[in-house]
Amino acid sequence: MRAAGLWLAAAFLALVAVAAFAPDLLAAHDPLQTDVMAALQPPSGAHPFGTDQSGRDVLSRVVHGAARSAGIGLLATALALLIGLAVGALSGVAPRLVDAGLMRVTDVLMAFPEFLVALIVVAVLGPGGVNVAIAVTIAAVPVYIRLARTQTLTQRSTEYVEASRILGVGRMRAFRRHVVPGVLGALSVLATIGIGSAILAAAGLSFLGLGPAEPDPEWGLMLSGGRNVLGQAWWISVFPGLAITLTVISATVLGRALRRRLDGSAA
């Protein structure tokens, strides 16, 4: 059962990747083309996911929305990983005063829910897809910093790092060759799980009107657009909601599987 779940998760994420990079393979309609005469049509052969208030094909908008929704999540996660690696590793090798200062700032940020931090940041920066990615990145960075620092301290005390130092390998060279790869491996596992959280946070901000604006197809924005006609046209919100849910679940399943494998290897 666990293997089947992993394969299903991987298959769905592969489908999302195809939708993001080659949407025309999955969607036949223009996601921005309106047809008032075809507004609010239920799912049918011509429109498998139905149409929205403007007569736009919901399937095409969900497919084309994968590039924006998943793209924002991937961008935010990649930035959070890189910043967390740099700051966390620096904190792990820095003098005690610098380390304490960085950790106190990290603790303050971690004291607030990630979505609240992202909401405050995007409210200051203004709406837009790029600003949402920045906000989600800032909200997620503290976790990566904390893990990178912990892994740096752990890797520095390992036998092979000590052996390399005894053999005359320079401090920075030993750090780059032995410490950074181990820290990056742990952060990569966290990032796999974090992609789902980032997509969910970005969709939540878009739902509140702080992300991409109409008529751009984006999953959170589509959810928001269908809430007022949910009783009349449930498909407008249900299908992008399913896309968000399944993407988050799939990324989490793969991330947890990688973490179990890493823990097993470490053991």
Rank of each mutant, 00 (worst) to 15 (best):
A148R: 09
G182A: 07
L153D: 00
Q151Y: 00
Q155Y: 12
A186T: 14
G126R: 11
G168Q: 01
V130A: 14
A133C: 12
N131M: 06
R149G: 14
A186S: 14
G168F: 07
T137W: 05
G128D: 07
V179M: 02
I145R: 14
V143P: 00
G128W: 09
R173S: 09
V132M: 01
T158M: 15
Y144C: 01
F175I: 07
L125Q: 09
I166F: 13
T152E: 12
M172F: 14
L187Y: 14
V132E: 08
G182Q: 05
V179I: 15
P181T: 00
T158P: 00
V132L: 08
G129Y: 02
A135R: 08
R149P: 08
T158N: 11
V169L: 13
N131G: 05
R146S: 10
I166M: 15
V141L: 02
V136C: 04
H178I: 02
N131H: 06
Q151S: 10
T152P: 02
V132W: 08
Y144M: 15
T158W: 00
N131L: 06
N131C: 00
V180P: 00
L184K: 00
I145L: 12
G128V: 04
L147M: 15
G182S: 12
R165K: 11
V141G: 10
V179P: 05
I166E: 04
Y160M: 01
A148L: 05
G129V: 10
R177M: 11
V130Y: 00
V136P: 09
I134V: 15
A140P: 04
V183S: 13
A186V: 13
I166V: 15
T158G: 11
A186W: 01
G185L: 03
I134N: 06
L167F: 09
H178V: 04
S164E: 06
I138P: 01
T158D: 14
L147Q: 13
A135H: 03
L187A: 02
G126V: 10
P181D: 10
L187M: 10
L147V: 13
L167W: 04
P142C: 05
A135P: 05
G182R: 06
Y160G: 03
Q155A: 15
I134S: 03
L187I: 12
A174V: 05
V161S: 07
G129M: 09
A139P: 01
L147H: 06
Y144R: 04
T158E: 15
A140R: 06
R173L: 07
L147C: 12
R176G: 10
T158H: 15
A174E: 06
H178C: 08
G185P: 01
H178G: 07
V179A: 13
S157M: 04
Q155P: 01
L184W: 13
S164V: 09
I166Y: 12
V132Q: 10
H178Q: 03
T137E: 13
A148C: 07
V141M: 08
V136S: 09
A174C: 12
R173Q: 12
Y144K: 07
V179T: 08
A133K: 02
R173V: 08
V179W: 12
I145G: 08
V143F: 07
A174F: 00
R149Y: 10
